[in-house]
Design a protein around this nucleic acid. Sequence first.
DNA 1: TCATATT
Length: 436
Amino acid sequence: MAEVKKERKSSSEESVKLFVGQVPKHMTEAQLLAMFQEFALVDEVNIIKDKATRASRGCCFVICPSRQEADKAVNACHNKKTLPGASSPLQVKYADGELERLEHKLFVGMLPKNVSESEVSTLFSKYGSIKDLQILRGSQQTSKGCAFLKYETKEQALAALEAINGKYKMEGSSVPLVVKWADTEKERQARKAQKAQSLASNVPINDSQHPSLFGALPMGYVPQYNGYGYQAPGTYGVMQYRLSPMQNQHGFHNMIPPVNQGNGLRGITPDLAPNMAPRSYAMPPASYVGSAYPAVPDLQHPLAYPGGIMSHRPLNSSPSSVPHAVVSGNSTTSFGTSKSSGSQVEGPPGANLFIYHIPQEFGDQELANAFQAFGRVLSAKVFVDKATGASKCFGFVSYESPEAAQSAISMMNGYQLGGKKLKVQLKRDNKQNKPY
DNA sequence: TCATATT
């Protein structure tokens, strides 16, 4: 019955969660706690673990009782200490969403374009002292009709949110203001990635695979995900249809291949239309298509390039979507059939490669396929941009043996693939000779 | 252009 006092500091309003990277996988929470407590008050350490294997993912959360203590930990440790076994210094920063939560930042939408900062300020000052306010503006300083706003306290922000959101119309406006908590950095990135994704996959692809997207719409209407980099007033992230003349003229309409205009022809898939491959790479002789290629590593053209067959979907290719050309034949070494999931398995010293100038559309699977002729591929990883999902065009391949790696280097280094020459070399090893 | 990982 009696009020239960907050039992844990770690769940209180003012506590701060830090994200810590470059944590050796063998370290325990107790060890980390002891280490961080040398620099700041710490309530708790949680190692972030793989959901399936429960193994450490090499990072953790640190809960500090206040922002001040959290800052002490950041200042003392971030980029300043390298733990034994780690390859680079500790990364210590506010966990995703913490800064936003701490700053109680509000988004205000549906502002009339002609209202000024001071008018907004006057309205919102009724609920507390405003620490920061900016109306978002375009290139000619024209208002975008929304603003970000910070109060001194969360209570003030909440009071304003509840009093104004959906209830208050500014002078001359027929719609009420929208007030909500600002998106976190992570939510923005997610939206950005989704946008990049739809641009990459919808626009250049022939519509036969996306009938639901365009089939029922009047010409000139394209689906948009919430257009802006922030909340569109009143939409809350829901798909909506907007007229987009720019995309109609230059983006979407002109991308439809002539053969598909006006005749309602569907079902021409990229697979059957080799002329629609986005780029032309040196293709293996036709007789090799359908077998694992190369069967013999010392061919002139050691690659089975999947171009024109699967390259439209590099980002979410899965073993089942990988066509014939690359997985059959002699491969006891097929990447897809061995353990390929989860964390990167590293081979013995000298068996791990760093590869640069990987074609943009290669994913992990394509990389593995390209290198499987030289030995069993333990893992293959192409690095991608976190926000956009686009390949960074470099990656790693690990073999069981250094001999395989050497063979791959001699065959593949300098090999021209998609306009650029691959650079294939042994991966650097940062933590080779660690002290006992 | 060398493993960046957010329970």
